Simulated scan of single mutants.
Amino acid sequence: MPCDDPCLPNVGAGEAFVDCSTNCCAPWDDDNGHGTQVGAIIGAGENCSCTTGIAPDATLHAVKVLDDRGSGSYSDIAAGVEYVADRGWDVGNISLGGSSGSSVLKDAVEYATNNGVLLVGAAGGSGPCTDCVAYPAAYPEVVAVSATNANDQLASFSSRGPEIELAAPGSDITTVGSDGGCATFSGTSYATAHASGAAALVMAQGYTNSGARTRLRNTAEDLGLSSDQQGHGLVDAAAAVGVDSSDD
Rank of each mutant, 00 (worst) to 15 (best):
L154E: 02
A150I: 12
A134P: 08
S102N: 11
H232E: 13
D152G: 06
A16R: 06
T208L: 05
G97R: 01
G98L: 05
A123H: 03
N114M: 09
A220S: 10
D131E: 15
S156A: 14
R213Y: 09
A44I: 02
T174Y: 03
F17S: 05
T59Y: 01
G170H: 03
T22W: 14
G233F: 02
P9Y: 05
G231W: 00
V18P: 08
P128Y: 11
D90K: 13
S246G: 12
F17T: 04
D76S: 15
G211D: 00
L225H: 08
V109K: 07
S227E: 15
G14H: 12
G35P: 09
A134E: 15
P136R: 11
H34R: 10
L225C: 01
V243G: 07
D4R: 11
G70F: 04
A183I: 07
G161I: 00
A137G: 09
C132S: 03
V11P: 03
Q153S: 15
G187K: 04
A55T: 02
A112Y: 06
Y190A: 02
Y139A: 11
G12K: 08
L66D: 07
T188H: 01
R160W: 09
D152R: 12
I42W: 00
E46S: 15
S146H: 07
P27C: 02
K64S: 02
T174L: 07
C7M: 10
L96C: 05
D179T: 10
G124K: 06
S146N: 08
L201F: 02
S21F: 11
V235A: 05
D5K: 12
V120I: 13
S99E: 13
A112G: 09
G180C: 00
G14R: 04
G125S: 15
C24F: 10
H194N: 14
D179S: 15
E221M: 12
S49W: 11
S146W: 04
G33W: 08
T113C: 13
A155V: 12
G101D: 01
V18K: 07
N114W: 07
H194G: 09
G70K: 03
L66F: 10
S75G: 12
P9W: 12
E163V: 09
T113G: 14
